[in-house]
Amino acid sequence: MAALTREEINFFLDSAEGFLEIAKRPVKKVPALRGKTVVNLFFEPSTRTRVSFEIAQKRLSADAVNFTASSSSTKKGETLLDTVKNIEAMAPTVLVIRHGAAGAAHFVAARTSAAVVNAGDGRHEHPTQALLDLFTMRKQKGRIEGLKVAIIGDIANSRVARSNMHALRTMGAEVSICGPGTMLPPHPEVFGVKSCNRLADALDGADVVMALRIQKERQGVATLPSDREYATFYGIGPRSLELTKPDCIVMHPGPINRGVEISSEIVDGPRSVILQQVESGVAVRMAVVYILAGGDRE
């Protein structure tokens, strides 16, 4: 997301609008990518992103093949490059890759003729998540420019936060971040965001609150005393929303730790657009796969 211009982001978002309606048809399929093969290379566990991509690809009539690290030759010691070269030999049009190392998608893109979609690379970026978040905000609020967005939680370890901070800045939103000191980036100014120590400062007047998952898999042991302490200081509950704008929406990229970063009341409440995010996800991923599969390669 760091490299995309406002025009490019808008192009993806505008295209995604056209794909949203397909999910409401009796026949949820268009022949756009008939005869094209898309390989989903997932070196890290993922359910919703993989399922979302797979549904998107199938609705475009592409042949979707999944490759997951736990059941693959990676376990047998094959390198990323060899895996990619082998898959390349089977002539896919698009590769969707998720990997634990930052830059993995970039590395692969430079070494294959297929179009590559980054479905999350380590702590670096998760561009389709940021696009679907932006898409959801635009749908709910009618605009992105000028929105006040509070991103709460494990910012430093989160590729979702990173992609969103880049994209929101490009689109002209005002972003505040908040979380325990151990989870904040040391130099928030590089993202053009305001870093707050107190949750109340970040939530003040917000149009959008985005709670992030506490990523136990990416942390050392000493970042948090306990889940309960986190919930007390940084959890999003009904009282948090007294500080925001009255029509503020609440987002979460999932999977949710209920009662830790966000309370059940909020997740299931009227302000939550968490399931709209999931719905947007399919439309946005259809747009991304379709755009990358056709025409000129960028």
């Binding site: 192009f11 295209s15 609008e17 056209g18 309606e21 990518l33 747009a287």
Partner: peptide, 13 residues
Amino acid sequence: IDLMGSIPVVRAT
């Protein structure tokens, strides 16, 4: 789709 120079925005049906 393979012949298009640039991808047009998909508009809603």
